[in-house]
Amino acid sequence: MIWVDTLVQGILLGGLYALFAAGLSLVFGIMRLVNLAHGDLIVFAAYLILMGVTLLGLPPWIAALIAMPLMFGLGWLLQSAVLNRVLGKDILPPLLVTFGLSVALQNGLLETFSADSRRIPAGSLEGASLDLGIVTVGVMPLLTFASAIIVIVALNALFYHTALGRAFRATSDDAVTAGLMGIEPKRIFAIATGIAMVVVTIAALYLGMRANFDPSIGPARLIYAFEAVIIGGLGSLWGTLAGGVIIGVAQTFGAAVNPEWQILAGHLAFLAVMLLKPRGLFPRAVD
């Protein structure tokens, strides 16, 4: 019975990792850019929400809603002012710029908010649980997982059923030809990064409400997100969810055997998938 419980907790944890990964997956899919500051941006958004809660006294949901347009603006600005300048055939410049951003952001947060771990207070939700008969699950993990599914459904709808989504796909396939058809790739990229930052804000809300966070935890979140994207296969958002679930389940099983093995088990699951299926489980894009 304890194994069923571990499995369910792992699947739900996977929802959180899928949320971390969805923004990364979106940006990579459209402009082949891996943002090494992705994890730090999640932590940054968590502090933004926390400020809304502590300084303005807002409930976390409202604070996140206010943070979303701010983060969209930040993403838009980051893309149009910095990243668009370094995108090109050579992958080194964007990689190094986002790495610089990661280190700068991490230490900027450290100076502003100190190394103390913080948490977004979620009131009665924090300890609430649902008895499902076989297992008891926390309301918060359940909400996280549901949000991950909603985010993926929404992103897929945006991608395949709107004019903007068509522009995204066209630019992803061939930016030059898309430009001939009246699409401005740089503007599309800026919007895409903005949307990724909105997803980052949702991920940050759950990151901050579920557990303590501090400025140094960004890179580890980036790694989990990256592993989920790779396991799922590039370009498939549902694959990313599956990847997140695999990492989550591996981690909870690892932790059930020995608490020290939690993180290690997740990484080993990733390496095992890499060994068996180098292109991920559900590859869509060809790179």
Binding site: V82, L96, V97, F99, G100, L101, S102, V103, A104, L105, Q106, N107, G108, E111
Partner: peptide, 10 residues
């Protein structure tokens, strides 16, 4: 210090 380094690198 590290923040400055990051910004200079960018």
């Amino acid at each position: 210090y590290l923040m400055t380094l990051g910004v200079i690198a960018i």
